[in-house]
Nucleic acid binder design. Structure first.
Length: 153
DNA sequence: GCCAACGTTGGC
DNA sequence: GCCAACGTTGGC
């Protein structure tokens, strides 16, 4: 079982939205590196932190389960969709998604500056300069460490 | 709203 | 295959 961190802008889709719907297709991935990770490394049963980006207090806000294999992202085929990609052929889909399922909110928001200041997390892509991955792997040690932060601060 | 970082596109 | 221009991400 692997661990992940997945970013979403809460104005578009928040942890509260995920709690409301229960399970959601994580669509809109349009980055090859991220696509390859979900295609080759992500598996049902994996677990992920839900991260709010591009908001007043960016940080980790919840936990979810990966509940599907990677499958074609239908929004890539729909001209009305924001993330429509005319170059993605339904017979040979370029973009993939996975389904995620709400587990719980973290006990508190764990804000980005706190993650950045933590020596145990300095290897995380999240806190490294110029990182632009919307999904990234989290090691087991990092996962446990972040969970331990829930009860602090 | 600004802008640094970085991925993608397309002309050559 | 190079690389300048352009678009996007996302913190601040």
């Amino acid at each position: 079982m692997a661990y992940w961190l997945m970013k979403s802008e809460p104005d578009a889709f928040s942890i509260d939205d995920l709690e409301r719907v229960g399970t959601e297709p994580w669509d809109g991935i349009r980055n090859y590196q991220v696509r390859n990770m979900i295609r080759d490394e992500m598996k049902p049963g994996d677990r992920a932190f839900f991260y709010h980006s591009n908001t007043k207090v960016p940080g980790i806000v919840g936990i979810m389960d990966i509940v599907s294999e990677a499958r074609p992202d239908p929004t890539a085929f729909d001209p009305d969709e924001k993330y429509y990609d005319p170059k993605s052929d339904p017979d040979k889909p370029r973009w993939l998604l996975v389904d995620v399922k709400y587990v719980r909110h973290t006990k508190r928001v764990i804000p980005l500056p706190e993650l950045k200041a933590d020596p145990a997390l300095e290897e995380m892509p999240l806190v490294r300069r110029g990182n632009r991955l919307s999904i990234m792997p989290v090691s087991e040690d990092q996962w446990e460490h972040i969970l331990s932060l829930e009860d602090q601060g």
